[in-house]
Simulated scan of single mutants.
Amino acid sequence: MDKTRTVTMKGNPVTLIGSEIKIGDKAPMFTVLDGGMQPVGLDTYKGKIKVISVTPSLDTAVCDLQLRRFNSEIASMGDEYAVINVSMDLPFAIKRFCTTAGIENAVAASDHREAAFGTAYGVLIKELRLLARAVFVVDENNVVTYAEYVPEVTSSPDFDKLIAFLKK
């Protein structure tokens, strides 16, 4: 049994459901829905390096910035990368956001249906049924090579560290 894991949301502790994903772990399989209600998962991007950006809601400034940066910086690094942003936002809201924000290089997807991604990756916030902010990099063989659980949900991930990691 895992020990209770927490992060903070606006300084208040919240409980994470699921096990912590560590570097070297086989990435858990998952299925989420894109803005067109189509299933998306690791198998959708076979042979690619998957950068999985996890955000609570695209309707917040930090989440908006995170997806926009990943869309422009990582997705433009080459065809070997696939950028997937997962949140609990409804697919309709995701589609509207991506259209308005010009998100064309990253795929935004929803875990609203079963929260299976959130549980599998240890980012589901028990008290809020939102996802905690995190970033995972999964290689071509579906092995986790990078994992960042952001300790304060309202803070950004370490973009510079991630970009440096991807460039090496």
Rank of each mutant, 00 (worst) to 15 (best):
Met9Val: 15
Gly11Arg: 09
Gly11Glu: 03
Asn12Trp: 02
Asn12Phe: 00
Asn12Thr: 13
Pro13Cys: 01
Pro13Asp: 07
Val14Arg: 14
Val14Glu: 11
Gly18Pro: 01
Gly18Arg: 09
Gly18Phe: 01
Ile21Val: 14
Ile21Asn: 10
Lys22Ser: 13
Lys22His: 11
Ile23Asp: 12
Gly24Met: 02
Asp25Ala: 11
Asp25Ile: 09
Asp25Ser: 10
Ala27Ser: 14
Pro28Asp: 13
Met29Gly: 06
Met29Pro: 01
Phe30Tyr: 13
Thr31Pro: 01
Thr31Ala: 09
Thr31Glu: 11
Thr31Phe: 03
Asp34Arg: 11
Asp34Ala: 12
Asp34Asn: 15
Pro39His: 14
Leu42Tyr: 11
Leu42Pro: 06
Asp43Cys: 08
Thr44Cys: 08
Lys46Cys: 03
Ile49Pro: 10
Ile52Glu: 13
Ser53Leu: 03
Ser53Pro: 03
Ser53His: 04
Val54Met: 05
Thr55Pro: 00
Thr55Cys: 06
Thr55Arg: 11
Asp59Glu: 12
Asp59Ser: 09
Thr60Cys: 04
Cys63Ser: 15
Asp64Val: 08
Gln66Thr: 13
Leu67Gln: 09
Arg68Ser: 01
Arg68Val: 07
Arg68Trp: 01
Arg69Asn: 13
Arg69Thr: 15
Asn71Phe: 06
Glu73Lys: 07
Glu73Pro: 02
Ile74Met: 05
Ile74Gly: 09
Ile74His: 02
Ala75His: 07
Met77Arg: 15
Met77Leu: 11
Asp79Phe: 09
Asp79Arg: 15
Tyr81Ala: 05
Ala82Lys: 07
Asn85Ile: 01
Ser87Trp: 01
Ser87Arg: 07
Met88Thr: 15
Met88Cys: 08
Met88Lys: 12
Met88Asn: 13
Leu90Pro: 01
Leu90Trp: 04
Pro91Asn: 09
Phe92Cys: 02
Ala93Lys: 02
Ala93Gln: 03
Ile94Trp: 01
Ile94Pro: 00
Arg96Leu: 00
Arg96Phe: 00
Arg96Ser: 08
Thr99His: 05
Thr100Ile: 04
Gly102Val: 05
Ile103Val: 13
Asn105Tyr: 08
Val107Met: 07
Val107Gly: 08
Val107Ser: 06
